[in-house]
């Protein structure tokens, strides 16, 4: 693999990206994951259970986020541990006009090295995911074996 662990230290940036989401992305994730909870696709149901509207699967946000680490590491199989807490919902409104799959929200994903264990050959990447100014994940950490 191309990354030299000895060049990494706490705080080293591993990159950032923006990810646009549409209601169609939620439906695609529901199909691919088998999680068909209607809070992720039906506005009426979401409101009936006390939400402000349809929200993204926490696991979709988590799944989108780790790709930054997979690309940085060069091989997704290098991610040996990955965790996150879902602290704030990500509302994904239906597109009011234009294409039905037009994105209605954009998440910003960024990562830094949180810890380096040269002996074990592992690096912990700490990930930040925000919707506007709001962090939607907490303790989003991926351990990579280099």
């Amino acid at each position: 693999m191309s990354i030299d662990i000895s060049t990494l230290e706490k705080g080293t940036e591993i990159g950032s990206r923006e990810v646009a989401l549409s209601r169609a992305d939620l439906i695609r994730y529901a199909a691919a994951s088998g999680d068909h909870n209607p809070i992720h696709w039906n506005e009426r149901f979401a409101r009936e259970v006390g939400l402000d509207g349809v929200i993204a699967h926490g696991m979709l946000t988590m799944g989108l986020t780790v790709d930054l680490v997979s690309e940085w590491a060069g091989d997704p199989a290098a991610v040996v541990d990955y965790q996150a807490r879902f602290t704030r919902p990500v509302p994904v409104p239906d597109a009011e006009d234009g294409a039905p799959d037009a994105p209605t929200v954009t998440l910003t994903v960024s990562g830094r090295v949180g810890a380096v264990d040269v002996e074990a050959g592992t690096v912990r990447a700490d990930l930040t995911v925000t919707l506007g100014e709001t962090k939607v994940l907490a303790k989003s950490q991926a351990v990579v074996r280099l």
Partner: peptide, 13 residues
């Protein structure tokens, strides 16, 4: 189940 939200998840491969 209608009152469930996902709080956290961890994968150890």
């Amino acid at each position: 189940f209608s009152r469930v939200v996902h709080a956290d998840e961890r994968f150890t491969h």
